[in-house]
Nucleic acid binder design. Structure first.
Lengths: 340, 340
DNA sequence: TTGTATGCGTTATCAA
DNA sequence: TTGATAACGCATACAA
């Protein structure tokens, strides 16, 4: 309510002086006036307008994060990583759910631009051959030219740096682990059709199976990223014997869905069939699911840190390089060794 | 990058005219100049500064939501409700994780105030006898006096309207359902110690048991709101026979933890022991958990709607009333009738 | 229908 | 060490 002008007036100093003490400037100020101004500000309940500050400094302490759906734990962990470093640095994170729609991403990016956000983080993975991706790339280019940082948390051709895990390598590694355990016939429950993330994970699986000389016993099945999809796909698997030695799902939720389907059908896991996922979400730890841990939290945190630590002027100059964060195999109780 | 002044200059009109067409004012404008201005704006890639707009209009289209932890599905569903109505109305939601710390809530509220947020939504429940609650209430009062709306999504004495479900009634109802199914000895796994939400849910359970003349067979056990807490509490229950007829957990996650503990111990659910939760999160549907559906999404949505639809001037005048949204019993497969 | 002038709350430049 | 004053980008009351 009370402005700098008001504080200055009551304290009997000029706005500039008031600004200097309240904004924590390095400009020399006498101890007496400083104390006076602080006292008045406190008394009046002065709250500096971040809006005015951002307006004059031409860049706000606002950080945008675009997720598909915050209810999806994959994204909420990322958002948490973003917000933790953002809030610690005095930034505020703006959350946008885009429901995997590229056009929505473009719209929301525009909004972030209107607020002169310090940067925006794209958490989702995009689609294979997305016809709107060039439009997004263009919008990202404009934003960056304007001093707004952009970071993608998945491999995507939108012309900005990428901070991500190597999902394909992660899928390869979990597959390799199952193979090393002696599994041969392995079913892979894919993610939602058309997504880049879906393709990467499947490709990792297939590459490993090929390298192991097991191409013939690699079985990809349509699925999705949620419990129900994993459950349904597994039910179909059960309906058509023979059962595979192991089931790998494209992510943890689907893997838990698979696990439940198997156990409900009284199929012993890991006795008869092993089950594994990818992501290492909380639910994976809870049910003892073997998986690959992806540095989701760290991706969000690192992206935020990059934006906060890099001056806006250089936003356009940041190379669109990929920083790959490492994943880690997490063997738990849903997988077991198969006798030779 | 390009400002209204620039657009006006290039289009050969005054800033006011440019503003009128670009801000969608109702002020009459000739079709020709309107077209001209729009064309120039488009060509220059004009992006209106939401910051400047907010500064001059003294209120932004920013909506703050304070959650304990966005990774907790209880809160991410609320956040989704908020963001859906916010974004549809052209607002942006600012997300803050406060980790159940009242002091952090105060700090973040201040930040929202600095951004002249249209309103802030408190999603968490607070503590019983929280010594900092008065401070929060004071900060909320200041914010409201300044035209910033505040809404709490849980019964809390912080001097603002409350939009919430009746958690106690919900707990009562799920208990009543189990009683009606013929259960007598019922264990209740409580939430985190000291939280208001914990107390409400337990009180609802106890009230029902008392009303049913079953006070003697009501057993409250310390627990928590996550899988692990429910699991651990149930393990302790198993270790000290006799087993109860049913286990009610303070929320769904803990209930799923209980469910797993029971099944791992080869105790048939619902054959030997029934299990129920509260909240109706996705995981509950997936595992077939009997629970009470709380209108989390709707609470967030309604709070956002209230803030957006109520003019800032009247923020301080909004009565601190409680709007109670209805819950609904969701019987599923983890509960069964006990023979008389 | 269009333009002029003023103010929103800050910061920064330049004097004093 | 302090103070005018000019932006920052926009909306609006008031004129024309």
């Amino acid at each position: 309510m009370s402005s700098l002008a008001e504080v200055a007036r009551v304290a009997g100093v000029s706005v500039s002086t008031a600004s200097r003490v309240l904004a924590g400037s390095s400009h020399p100020i006498s101890a007496k006036t400083r104390a006076k101004v602080m006292a008045v500000a406190d008394e009046l309940g002065y709250s500096p307008s971040a809006l005015a500050r951002a307006l004059v400094s031409r860049s706000s302490r606002l950080l945008g994060v675009l997720v598909s759906d915050i209810v999806n734990p994959y994204f909420s962990v990322i958002a948490r990583g973003v917000d933790d470093v953002a809030s610690r640095a005095g930034y505020v994170t703006m959350l946008c759910n885009v429901d995997r729609r590229t056009t929505t991403e473009i719209t929301r990016l525009r909004t972030m631009r209107d607020y002169r956000a310090a940067g925006v983080i794209f958490a989702g993975s995009g689609y294979v051959d997305d016809p709107r991706e060039p439009d997004l790339a263009e919008a990202v280019g404009e934003a960056r030219a304007q001093g707004i940082h952009a970071v993608s948390l998945a491999a995507r051709g939108i012309g900005c740096p990428v901070i991500a895990a190597d999902a394909q390598a992660a899928a390869y590694e979990i597959t390799d682990y199952l193979v090393s355990l002696g599994h041969r016939r392995i079913a892979f429950i894919e993610g939602p059709e058309g997504m880049v993330a879906t393709r990467q994970r499947r490709d990792g699986f297939l590459a490993c199976m090929r390298d192991a000389g097991l191409a013939e016993s690699a079985h990809c099945r349509p699925g999705g990223f949620d419990y129900e999809a994993g459950h349904a796909a597994t039910l179909r698997l059960i309906a058509r014997p023979p059962l595979p030695d192991a089931v790998i799902a494209a992510n943890d939720e689907a893997a838990v869905g698979a696990l439940n389907a198997l156990r409900q059908a009284r199929i012993d896991v890991p006795g008869e069939v092993s089950v594994a996922g990818i992501d290492d979400l909380r639910v994976a730890r809870f049910v003892g699911l073997t998986t690959v841990s992806l540095p989701l939290y760290e991706m969000g945190a690192m992206a935020a840190r990059h934006i906060i630590d890099t001056p806006p002027e250089t936003a356009a100059a940041v190379p669109a390089e990929t920083t790959t964060l490492s994943h880690r195999l997490i063997p738990r109780e849903t997988t077991a060794r198969r006798p030779g």
